[in-house]
Amino acid sequence: MTAPDIRVVADAFDQGEELNRFTAMAGPAGAVVSFSGIVRDEGGMLQALEIEHYPAMTDRAIRAIADQAASRWALSAVLVIHRHGRLCPGEVIMMVATASLHRQAAFEAAEFLMDYLKSRAPFWKKAFTAGGAEWVAARDSDEDALDRWR
């Protein structure tokens, strides 16, 4: 596998452009799977989401997760882009993409990456609404999601 492409960025990115570039660089792949996470508007309540992270740790934590995925599935490429800072509803928070010879590995690895990024990559979200600001709590279901990979 080529080295995972991991980026933690403040600015918006073009997911279509990224996916095209990823596909072109993915080597001998028969399947590319991508996932994009979008800021929900929570029924019109959410004004903005602020994403804090731990710069010294973020890249290496994501890299460790990507390496784990690469050791479990036969992947030819992995992409993770995650934004930080202030985002509005509808904006893309992050995307992952995986490439493999066959779709099953690409699908499973993408799910694995998402499950681990949720609760093992050092990001925290603060939700701003008309009523004030509140840190988004981790959900037990996010932790439970890791069980199926153990």
């Binding site: 740790m57 992050m94 949720k118 050092p122 709590a137």
Partner: peptide
């Protein structure tokens, strides 16, 4: 050299 404390992470 460095110790960081934080609540459970909410990435993705």
């Amino acid at each position: 050299r460095e110790v960081a404390f934080f609540p459970p992470m909410t990435g993705g």
